[in-house]
Design a protein around this nucleic acid. Structure first.
Lengths: 236, 236
DNA sequence: AAGTGGTCTAGACCACCGC
DNA sequence: CGGTGGTCTAGACCACTTG
């Protein structure tokens, strides 16, 4: 175990066991470096890790303080539909149900401020069973190739990742009563809700896509963990 | 803008514009340091940031490569119920509905491997309207004070955060048909689904709590963003 | 065996901000 | 103004893994 890991673990223990309660003013970096017998950079690295995790807050001149935990940050890993299905041992396929090109009438919420848009409705299947219904708007000005693309081989999701591999993404998660399209295409049980992800992607401030993904509630779930959860295996 | 930020932005552009496609072998840290005219530590910092974001992968001896984006990692911020409600300008209150102490019969899934458990059923209200139903199991061996606590002033959530401020957390999110308890307490509309969070917390490998949180689907949603989303404001 | 990334050091200077 | 954290440097040595 490296020095910075031990220092991180020590500081974490002091916080979680109440030695350093919320609001406590942590010794300066120079002082900690002396206490642990390391260079300032090493103790800084341990502190940074705890700042990223939301346990500490640093401010110039006034020093480092223990945060009161008002929220926890978990990492939500959002897989690619096809890979998610194939990893579970099922066969993936998709159908393009609707496709059109247009302007503001496709974007009632005004997210794209009037740009020309490609609209797609696409169903993703797991072993021939409906798994995800995707309704997507793509900004043609930002991604010109989106106007003519047929989406015959590649699904819109993966095609877009080739155009812009790592956009900035925002997801909103909801439990909803199925829409008409949902009921038509997802083959839901009676009373079954849908798990909805509303996603926006941007690159350098320009809105690229807005998407609504709906899934049968009985077959879909997402997991989110704090960074330390995986490194902290349950005891047998 | 600091050198490491500019370097990060440059590398990001090379990846997103296809100069460095998935699988591409990035020049070594020494070479990049020379290209940008900085110390190796500085270029390393930019690389680390992209590794954390999932864009790059580093391996000793074989070098740094561009990842193919098989998933995206978003940060899910999970607020404290009371603060979430009060921030929206409403009045928070809660009711302890059921409370008991027992062993394995409370834990059919066997998560706690037979430990003595405290079980709570608790309703959280926003302006007197049901907002969240909480069913929680607490490991008494790990948190002895949980056996006798009355939860009269503080709700279980916040009381536990005083005992263990920063546990490791795993959340599973689902859209579900309401259970009997949900319908009884959440005052749901006809056909309205519930948004369910199943949460486990651990500290140093020991399971602390297992909780099911259910919310009326019509009033609840969660948001998850990539790190760069906030820094990348939409254009007017 | 060698070359890559991973860690650490000792020091310098800067930027912010509370006093 | 002074003291804190923030950035950067130049160099050393280590650890892993692949050829």
């Amino acid at each position: 175990m490296h020095p910075y890991e031990e220092i991180r673990a020590t500081l974490l223990r002091r916080i979680n066991e109440g030695d350093w309660p919320a609001g406590f003013s942590v010794p300066g970096e120079e002082a900690l470096a002396e206490e642990f017998g390391v260079a300032r950079g090493t103790v800084r690295r341990a502190l940074s890790s705890l700042v990223d995790a939301g346990l500490l807050e640093r401010r110039r001149r006034s020093g480092t303080r223990v945060m009161s935990r008002s929220s926890s940050r978990s990492v939500l890993t959002i897989p690619i539909v096809r890979e998610e299905i194939e990893r579970s041992g099922r066969r993936y396929s998709f159908k393009l149900l609707e496709s059109s090109v247009g302007g503001q009438k496709l974007d009632p919420a005004g997210l794209f401020s009037g740009a020309r848009l490609r609209r797609l409705l696409c169903l993703h299947l797991s072993d021939e069973r409906p798994f995800q219904l995707e309704e997507r708007l793509i900004n043609i000005a930002a991604i010109p190739a989106a106007e003519a693309e047929r989406f015959a081989e590649k699904n819109p999701n993966e095609w877009l990742l080739e155009q812009v591999p790592f956009p900035a993404v925002r997801n909103v998660l909801r439990a909803e009563v199925p829409t008409l399209d949902d009921s038509r295409h997802l083959r839901l049980g009676p009373g079954e809700p849908v798990f909805v992800i509303k996603r926006q992607t941007r690159r350098e401030g320009v809105m690229l896509t807005a998407t609504r993904l709906s899934h049968p509630g009985s077959v879909y779930q997402m997991a989110a963990e704090t960074d330390d959860f995986a490194e902290d295996p349950a005891q047998g």
